[in-house]
């Protein structure tokens, strides 16, 4: 479905990514883990062309994303849940969700998607008239995920959905992510919370300073001694 080939991204003189190769197959949950500054977020942002790509290609099926402007990428069925949530603070919850369906012209489909999101996150329905800026961090994360789902996306890119949230909320979010995957939506997940990521991922990539150092099925990675030491607390 998605394949990244030999991707290099430089910020000025800093080589953020040095030849990333990554594949996501339809229906999978793929987790990308690594320490701060390893290049996880950069990889995700590159898919949406939000970074200066020096070399390499990103394919979504047969389409080369590096040749497209950012706003066109959403129309292919890829949705991005950005780091730090980035909801539209002065719009209501419902308006935020409607913005997510900006490219969907059919009103019935929008209704249906809205129903789907409200079922996943009943809390959003309760607060649909509230300004998004006044929501709690967890609710904003739900809103950001809901907004991404409104676009009929087949591939969801999630950037640190657990960031800054209470452990209980993190569990709630991840159980919803699992439900979303059961609806045949593919997930590419960037996480620092490796334990949570392993709980839903089929496959895992481990990044270190701009390179992928390890990849494989979740059980294999979770039992790797080095990974255990570095990410799972012994």
């Amino acid at each position: 479905m998605l394949s990244i080939k030999d991707l290099h991204v430089y910020y000025g003189g800093i080589k953020a990514l040095q030849g990333i190769n990554l594949d996501v197959k339809e229906g999978e949950v793929v987790a990308l883990i690594g320490a701060n500054g390893a290049g996880k977020t950069t990889t995700l942002r590159s898919i949406f062309r939000l970074t200066p790509i020096v070399k390499g290609d990103i394919y979504f099926y047969e389409i080369n994303l590096t040749k497209l402007p950012s706003y066109k990428i959403a129309s292919l069925g890829i949705a991005h849940v950005p780091e730090g949530r980035r909801v539209f603070p002065n719009m209501t919850v419902k308006e935020n969700l409607e913005m997510g369906a900006y490219l969907v012209k059919d009103k019935k489909v929008i209704e249906k998607n809205l129903e789907f999101v409200y079922n996943l996150f009943p809390r959003l329905k309760e607060r649909q008239k509230q300004l998004a800026g006044t929501l709690s961090g967890g609710e904003q994360q739900m809103l950001a995920i809901g907004r991404a789902l409104m676009s009929n996306a087949r591939l969801l890119l999630l950037d640190e959905p657990s960031m800054g949230l209470a452990p209980l909320l993190v569990q709630e979010i991840f159980s919803v992510l699992k439900k979303i995957n059961e609806e045949k939506i593919t997930l590419l997940l960037v996480e620092q919370n490796a334990n949570m990521a392993f709980s839903i991922a089929h496959r895992v990539y481990v990044m270190e300073t701009g390179k992928i150092v390890l990849s494989g099925p979740t059980e294999e990675i979770a039992n790797n001694e080095a990974v255990k030491k570095a990410y799972l607390g012994g």
Partner: peptide, 11 residues
């Protein structure tokens, strides 16, 4: 409200 997010929405 948020330029990056709105670009991600396909605007």
């Amino acid at each position: 409200e948020d330029e990056t997010a709105s670009e991600s929405m396909g605007i």
